[in-house]
């Protein structure tokens, strides 16, 4: 296999909260065209890892490097979340964080914010350029809703959506920021098997059609086996394994980490 372009490179990432080490020197890479997965039992530090990458926390140690294609590489440590998003790295949240009192369409429109430019004065004057930009925002957002299958809910308030649809809306909103790498935090949590299957399909579609690499967190190991490669496994803040699905399945450490969970998951 030809060497693929490396998009995200995390080296020895460590995050301390007071005396607690939530993430302990974890390294990870995401290449172009990949759907990588980060799995592990509850409390393994996966979400904290995400929060470090996306700028919500500033990591204690380690490097987060972003290598956009055709652009200069950047170190993400300590950058504000909005800057990280501007650079082409978007995310969703484990405990859905939609703007509840905005419509579904408006939620996606927010994602367009960092790719548009109308300022205060221009918004008041509302010249031709502003009107065109506004229309462009609406059209792009609507197309994204069609893509994730939420067009029928366009003018609903997002709080009134069914649970699975809310998760898809988060993905649409993240896509609106035009990322080249999408981070999904437990996108299938709380979904029924049918919704999960649809979601798998959607993730593959995004990866193929949009040329967006994906890094997703999942709690449930079985679920990611079909779609992701490579898989990274975390436990107690440490990375315990990485590799192709089959390797992970056979890894004794992983089996041990999941033992007891496997029976009831």
């Amino acid at each position: 296999m030809a060497e693929k372009h490396k998009l995200l490179e995390v080296k020895g990432l460590t995050m301390d909260f007071g005396g607690l080490r939530a993430v302990d020197s974890v390294s990870l890479e995401v290449h172009e065209g990949e759907i990588a997965a980060l799995i592990g039992p509850n409390g393994a530090g996966k979400t904290t890892f995400f929060n470090c990458i996306t700028g919500i926390y500033t990591p204690t140690k380690g490097d987060i490097l972003l290598h956009p294609k055709g652009l200069e590489s950047r170190r993400l440590n300590g950058l504000k979340p909005n800057k990280v998003t501007e650079m082409g790295l978007a995310r969703t949240f484990q405990n859905i964080r939609l703007f509840h009192d905005m419509t579904v369409l408006e939620n996606v429109m927010i994602g367009r914010h960092c790719r548009t430019t109308s300022g205060i004065l221009h918004s008041i004057l509302r010249g031709k350029a502003v009107r065109e930009e506004e229309q462009q925002i609406v059209e792009t957002s609507y197309q994204l809703l069609e893509k994730v299958g939420l067009a029928e809910f366009t003018n609903e308030f997002s709080k009134n959506l069914p649970y699975g649809a809310q998760r898809r809306l988060e993905i649409a909103r993240a896509l609106a920021t035009e990322p080249f790498l999408l981070l999904l935090d437990e996108p299938a949590a709380g979904m029924n098997p049918q919704e999960t299957a649809d979601l798998d399909h959607l993730i593959c579609k995004i990866s193929e059609e949009e040329q967006i690499a994906i890094l997703l967190i999942e709690h449930d190991m079985k679920l990611v086996m079909n779609i992701s490669n490579p898989i990274y496994v975390m436990e107690y803040g440490k990375k315990i394994a990485e590799g192709a699905p089959q390797q992970i399945k056979d890894n004794p450490k992983v089996i041990e980490a999941y033992l007891g969970e496997e029976t009831d998951a």
């Binding site: 909005n82 998003t85 964080r97 914010h113 918004s123 609106a176």
Partner: peptide, 27 residues
């Protein structure tokens, strides 16, 4: 006009959820 603009939407998003707002690229 301000409310129905890009700026106004950003304000409302900020009110609704600060963290999601910055994560969506709003300064």
């Amino acid at each position: 006009r301000l409310r129905n603009s890009r700026i106004g939407r950003a304000w409302i998003a900020l009110r609704e959820d600060e963290i999601a707002c910055v994560a969506m690229g709003i300064d």
